[in-house]
Computed example of a mutant assay.
Amino acid sequence: MTDQKPVDIASLDWPTKANILSEALPFMRRFAGKTFVIKYGGHAMGDDHLADLFARDVVLLKQVGINPVIVHGGGPQIGKMLERLKIQSQFIDGLRITDEATVEIVEMVLAGSINKHLVGAINRAGGLAVGLSGKDANLITARRLTRTKVDPDSHIEKVLDLGFVGEPETVNAKVLEVFAQSDIIPVIAPTAIGSKGETFNINADTAAGAIAGALGATRLLLLTDVAGVLDKSKTLLKELSTEDSRRLIADGTISGGMIPKIETCVSAVMQGVEGAVILDGRVPHAILLEIFTSGGVGTLVRRG
């Protein structure tokens, strides 16, 4: 999938171009004025060509009346910076243990270089993007995330210290609602502020889900490095209810890193998001294909 090239629109004949626009029009009308929270991460962030296409697609959404809210990750970039600074990282269940020194680097990379690179790409594509972190205007407040683990020898449950890894407590939706009434596209780094003024690192999927829920978004889109949720025969599941999602986790069809993504989707739709989608960010124009075509390209999770 990573070597898939985008269609050269200029080379298409006029009837084909007209058909493409005609199919998209009903979806543009349906979603005009609606809010879409898009988590941007995975392979697409490391590919300049895909990043430029993503930026253009986000600008297009704004132009047709959709309110895109972008939340980005940056795990690989954080890892590279920590390596350069010779700071070792440890992980528990995929979460980086974040001490005081590490959280400073996390904030520098997320709210600094990554955020501003994405803001610049959207602005170059003709948009008007503004970079934020969850700390700005108390956009996201957080509490310390805790994990427990049962010791295999003593069978005693122990609380694991993840340091400055947090989970969202509140989202100040009013800040983002102001942007929805303007031409501005908010681009959010998933750091948050604690009750004592401390900085917390938030998983980007989790942050996006919390923001989507607070805004009552029409869609939460999680861009990842797989096509979506696959069944046991490796066929893409186009749509799941929340009940289906829980059942597939229980029987092992959904496993590994897909579990927290699905849990984020389920949590979002239970908070009032109309639908949450897991889709492949490696596919050029993935968000346009998901939003403006009848079949979509990912796995849609709805309440039920």
Rank of each mutant, 00 (worst) to 15 (best):
K5L: 14
P152S: 10
I211H: 02
G257M: 06
I20T: 08
E23V: 11
K80L: 14
A250W: 00
G216Q: 09
I20G: 04
L162R: 01
A125T: 07
E157C: 11
A24L: 07
D52G: 11
F36Q: 06
L230M: 12
G213Y: 06
L248W: 05
G112Q: 02
S245Y: 07
R143T: 13
D48G: 08
E169V: 10
K135A: 02
G134F: 06
A180G: 09
T293M: 07
T199E: 00
V159N: 09
H117N: 14
F200C: 06
A212K: 02
Q88S: 15
T199Y: 05
L110R: 02
V178K: 08
D8P: 11
A204Q: 05
E263S: 01
R29Y: 12
V175H: 01
A32C: 13
V159Q: 13
I249F: 10
L82A: 12
E83S: 15
A204M: 05
F292Q: 04
S89K: 13
M1A: 14
S182G: 05
V226M: 00
M258V: 02
R96V: 10
L139R: 01
T2C: 05
V37F: 02
G75W: 02
L240G: 02
Y40N: 00
T235L: 12
I105Q: 06
R303H: 14
G134E: 07
A101G: 14
Q181L: 11
A18R: 15
P168S: 11
G120W: 06
D52I: 09
A250K: 13
N201K: 05
R30M: 12
S267K: 13
E104Q: 11
R246I: 00
L25H: 13
T235F: 11
F164A: 04
G127I: 08
V119P: 03
A286M: 08
V301Y: 01
A189H: 03
A129D: 09
L61Q: 08
L176A: 05
S233T: 15
N67M: 00
I262D: 01
P190I: 00
R56W: 04
A51W: 04
V226R: 02
Q181I: 01
M45A: 12
L220H: 06
A18M: 15
M28W: 02
E169R: 10
L110C: 07
I291S: 09
S245I: 07
L128F: 13
P260T: 04
L25M: 14
G46Y: 04
H285P: 08
D3N: 15
K174G: 09
G209A: 15
I287D: 04
L222D: 00
A129M: 10
S241M: 09
I184M: 12
V159R: 12
V58I: 15
L128Q: 13
A217S: 14
V71L: 04
